Simulated assay, not measured.
Amino acid sequence: MDLLCAERLADCRLAERDRVIFEDMRVLQNLLDLETVYIPACNYFGTVQKDIQPYMRKVVSTWMLEVCEDQHCEDQVFPLAVNFLDRFLCACGISRRQLQLVAAVCLLLASKIREWHSLSVDVLCLYTDHSISPEEMKNWELLVLSKLKWTVTAVTGFDYVDHVLERVEWSKENPLIRRHAHTLVGLCYTEPELIQSRPSLLATASISAAVRGLNSPSAATVLTSVCAMTRVDPAAAEHVVRHIERVVASETASLQPLPTTSNKVASSASSSAKVMSGAEETGQPETPTDVQDVHF
């Protein structure tokens, strides 16, 4: 008897809304209680990491974001990978030459946890322009896991977006709110200044910035209502919102006509390789693709 499997690997299926999850406040409460466990323990620049500077982390995290975009990864993969990267860098000193290797390993691990079809070692090596080998990645995967104490689940800013938007009426004012919020959460995870920020704070600020940027009718009251839900200090959230708006304004103002996606990621890999090889790099990394679609 012949068996036919109609499943296609190209399909990306989203789960239907679960009323139990989104109507039970205990779920959101558990996220808030657990998030502090996964926040990076320190600002590692100049302490644990003697050879890595903030701009290097910006470059490599932007490269990670572009790889995720090019491979059409789930939105939740990138924040988790950056969380792994920051937690590892808090625990283990490395040279700048090894930073892209660690970033690639973190992408590999995060895709295994949160992606329905994980990234392959060979694909990630390709995105580094073969500056690292598959054998190196496999060896460092064990090192990263050991430094993370095999704690490969984490609460990220992405996890809060749907829990907030499903509980408020103003989320229906514009269908782009969710997309923009996810984009801004990703942008926050590329910013070295926000390494030790609570995920709930990043999510609150990203949602508020997205609603304001779309000029939704409820823009004036969004920050207060989300802060009450996520137990975030409104002043702290406003500070991050303004930081997001400055970054988006700066990035969009400097946009140039972008090459094709494959060329862009290859160029980013080359730029990252220059930074990791010790070459001085003072320019800004490339703009994450989705930021072009966010208008303030």
Score class of each variant (00 low, 15 high):
residue 174 N to V: 05
residue 177 I to P: 00
residue 192 P to Q: 07
residue 256 Q to E: 11
residue 235 A to E: 15
residue 240 V to S: 01
residue 126 L to C: 12
residue 67 V to S: 00
residue 88 F to L: 08
residue 232 V to L: 05
residue 112 K to G: 09
residue 81 A to W: 00
residue 64 M to K: 04
residue 97 R to C: 06
residue 159 D to C: 08
residue 33 D to W: 08
residue 174 N to C: 12
residue 165 L to H: 06
residue 49 Q to L: 06
residue 87 R to C: 07
residue 201 L to E: 02
residue 100 Q to S: 05
residue 17 R to T: 13
residue 131 S to I: 11
residue 10 A to K: 11
residue 167 R to W: 10
residue 262 S to H: 13
residue 66 E to S: 03
residue 26 R to W: 13
residue 290 D to L: 14
residue 232 V to R: 01
residue 65 L to R: 10
residue 186 G to R: 02
residue 200 S to M: 09
residue 4 L to F: 12
residue 43 N to V: 12
residue 14 L to P: 06
residue 260 T to Y: 12
residue 58 K to E: 08
residue 219 A to Y: 09
residue 149 K to F: 09
residue 155 V to P: 01
residue 261 T to S: 15
residue 265 V to G: 02
residue 99 L to S: 01
residue 120 S to V: 07
residue 185 V to P: 01
residue 168 V to F: 07
residue 95 S to V: 11
residue 253 A to G: 11
residue 91 A to V: 11
residue 292 Q to C: 11
residue 73 C to W: 01
residue 157 G to H: 01
residue 252 T to F: 08
residue 222 V to Y: 05
residue 232 V to H: 02
residue 261 T to N: 13
residue 112 K to H: 08
residue 9 L to K: 12
residue 187 L to P: 00
residue 8 R to W: 09
residue 241 V to N: 00
residue 63 W to P: 01
residue 182 H to A: 08
residue 134 P to W: 13
residue 172 K to S: 09
residue 6 A to N: 12
residue 1 M to S: 13
residue 159 D to I: 03
residue 155 V to K: 02
residue 77 V to M: 02
residue 265 V to M: 05
residue 34 L to V: 12
residue 48 V to A: 01
residue 181 A to W: 00
residue 69 E to C: 08
residue 194 L to D: 01
residue 103 A to L: 05
residue 105 V to G: 00
residue 255 L to A: 15
residue 45 F to T: 03
residue 223 L to R: 11
residue 101 L to D: 02
residue 90 C to V: 10
residue 267 S to W: 04
residue 242 R to S: 11
residue 250 S to F: 14
residue 121 V to P: 05
residue 72 H to L: 14
residue 71 Q to I: 06
residue 181 A to E: 00
residue 144 V to W: 05
residue 153 T to L: 12
residue 292 Q to K: 13
residue 39 I to L: 09
residue 234 P to H: 05
residue 29 Q to S: 15
residue 232 V to Q: 13
residue 178 R to I: 10
residue 95 S to Q: 14
residue 102 V to R: 01
residue 156 T to V: 07
residue 26 R to V: 11
residue 175 P to Q: 08
residue 43 N to F: 14
residue 183 T to K: 02
residue 20 V to G: 04
